[in-house]
Amino acid sequence: MAEHHISAAAKIRAAVAQDLLSGRISLLLGWEKGHFQWQSRPLFARDGADLERLAWDSFCAVNLSRYLPEELKENEKVGVLVKGCDSRALNRLVQDRAVPRERVVAYGLPCPGMLDAGRLVEAAGGWPDEIAEANGRVVLKGGGRESEVHRDSLLLDKCRHCLYPDPVACDQLLLAPVGNREAPDRFKAVEEREQLSAGERYAYWEKELQRCLRCYACRQICPACSCRECFVEQEQPRWLGKAYDASETFLFHLIRAYHVAGRCIDCGECERSCPVGIPLQELNRKLIKDLNALYGPYEAGLDPEREPPLLTYAPNDPAAFTEK
């Protein structure tokens, strides 16, 4: 890994060690390396030995805030490393009263954007054995080949569209801010889809949703999906059948998207964690776009004091149907 990443990980370790070893927090949520260099998985650090494994590199995409509600059942105080998107996820959970803010110590990590393993493989022409980064470029080695590409070309989709790479809320900023980023228009795909006829749109979604495994990883990773009992598992009434009928999959997707409407922070974790590439962000962004247009611009997860659009109203609100 790149030099600055190694030293950054050491810096982070040093900063959190005191809190963990002194018992101010009994658990630190971070990342550690998985089996491959292009994998960094969640780390649940409870002592100094665990902390040794802490990693901070270009593959720490998993949002750790989502583990807080569960871990706070067992721990009085939990520390968590938050990137920009993770910090908005934390705000989301706090605003939804799924996480008491005073029981969390958030360590902020300004984020350079995380890399997409799929794009790495494509650029390297196979799985790379070695990944090295310097000055905004990535050198990939493997299978007798060596390629050098611009780092930006390897970014995850969710990072391409990220507007807030610096944490918007944390107790302690551990690294230097990277500054807000310019992102391509996030509503472009939605607008293109809106141009299609109803029949074409239905055919599009039928084809896309056909791949859905209904593993519910998209819900599980979602910081807005913190219900104790999800409608998906509810028995009385049983809203969602277990069969793989297209209508059940449509029902799941439309209701999931609707349930997070106005609260979705657009972190893209649902789409990133989906094993079969369902364009979940298109549904989420459709709702963000419409709610912004109807009820005024709102950026979920930025300000926990500002009420989400579907939790409030104004008597003279417009409607998307005729009110005659």
Binding site: V190, R193, E194, A198, G199, E200, R201, Y202, A203, Y204, W205, E206, F250, L254, A257, Y258, A261, G262, L283, K286, L287, D290, L291, L294, Y295, P309, L310, Y313, A314, P315, D317, P318, A319, A320, F321
Partner: peptide, 20 residues
């Protein structure tokens, strides 16, 4: 007042999924 917002959002989502 609440449902005007909710169903406005949901109606447009239904249409986005391909319903007339």
């Amino acid at each position: 007042y609440h449902v005007r917002r909710r169903l406005s959002a949901f109606k447009q989502l239904l249409e986005f999924s391909g319903l007339e």
